[in-house]
Computed example of a mutant assay.
Amino acid sequence: MVKLEKKLGPGDLPPDFELPDDSGHKISLASFAGRILVLYFYPKDDTSGCTKEAIDFNGLRGQFNKAGAAILGVSPDSSASHTKFKAKHKLDLALGADETKATLEAYGVWVEKSMYGRKYMGVERTTFLIGKDGRIAAVWNKVKVPAHAETVLAVVKAL
């Protein structure tokens, strides 16, 4: 993957990727060709914010499907971690495992963060909405979880 020179935005072509999903099968951007894709990046399975976000998207997946949109969550966790996470919370959405962080870097969401004065690298919670034309239709950076899935759904319905 190529190092990102600028933040990705509406109208840009998203970087291609191929990742193992929660069942160990390969999933790629091309897997969603011709469909709307909600591609959300999150820091870690089974943490409070990430669990709430996944449950919110999962709860609305029927409405997303009806609107012609697929949902894919991506984190640096392993496929095995994703499998446990999905089973524990009864999730029925695809999760991609980016243990190498190549896709996270390509999308510009693997960033330096700071907590209590300590700097570290981590995932900036971000959602990309990719249209049927394969271009980015919308981006939500530094996502706050409450009502986020509903906001994304409203934009999907407007496409």
Rank of each mutant, 00 (worst) to 15 (best):
M1Y: 09
V2Y: 04
K3A: 13
P10H: 11
L13V: 15
P14M: 10
D16F: 09
F17T: 12
E18T: 15
L19R: 00
D21N: 15
S23D: 10
H25R: 14
K26T: 15
S28A: 13
S28E: 09
A30G: 15
S31T: 10
G34C: 13
R35A: 11
L39Y: 05
L39V: 13
Y40Q: 02
F41P: 06
P43A: 14
D45H: 04
D45Q: 03
T51G: 03
A54L: 03
I55W: 08
R61E: 05
Q63A: 15
F64P: 05
N65F: 14
A67M: 12
A70C: 15
A70Y: 10
V74Y: 00
P76V: 05
S78W: 00
H82N: 02
H82R: 01
H82G: 02
T83W: 09
K86W: 00
K88M: 13
K88F: 11
H89V: 12
H89D: 07
H89G: 12
D92Q: 11
L93H: 11
A94V: 05
A94E: 08
G96I: 03
G96Q: 02
D98A: 04
K101W: 12
A102R: 09
T103C: 13
T103D: 04
A106W: 01
G108D: 10
G108E: 09
W110E: 12
S114Y: 00
R118F: 14
E124G: 07
R125V: 12
R125S: 05
R125G: 12
F128M: 01
K132C: 10
I136Q: 08
A138W: 04
V139M: 06
W140P: 00
N141W: 07
N141R: 15
P146F: 13
H148F: 08
A149T: 10
A149V: 09
V155K: 15
V155P: 00
K157M: 14
K157F: 14
A158K: 13
